[in-house]
Amino acid sequence: MQKKIIKSSIILFIIFIIGVFFTGLNKSSIYDTKNLVGQKITNIKLERFNNNRIITEEDLKKNDFTLINFWASWCAPCRVEHPILLKLNKEKNLKLLGVNFKDKKNNALKFLRDLGNPYDDLARDELGKYSINFGIYGIPESILINKDLVIIKKFIGPISQNDYTYIKNTVRE
């Protein structure tokens, strides 16, 4: 009797392990931070692009929704998402905060002159240090937050047409 229990529990254990391996096979092994939503962003400190005034939490609390977009003039995919950002700029409940990432000031200004400026407010992160506070690991990356500074969604890579629809629907609700 005792032997039987041992036998069947060992076999069940093996089945469990194989089952896990089997399920694991179909999961992507590439990591991203998309699932890290729902937490509140704190300790915001961003230098404004044009003057030295600091953008703080208070500034962001004024908006119903804010899309924080990390970009640079040297980043090719940023050009891809730019037209969508321009469209998003027209949303009433949404403010766009651009963070210029590890970029030269002149290049960034030229980029905005050439392609248009979608941002309601523009900050600058010369060394990329502030971006760590937002959990950024490559650009372009954007974060949608609400009034309470809680992250609703993270967009890794350029914002797509689907993402646009999602953002539009979210802020209009």
Partner: peptide, 14 residues
């Protein structure tokens, strides 16, 4: 199988 993330990647195929 590519189930794990590693330095030495073979082309993966489930």
């Amino acid at each position: 199988s590519g189930i794990l993330n590693s330095v030495h990647t073979f082309a993966n195929d489930p």
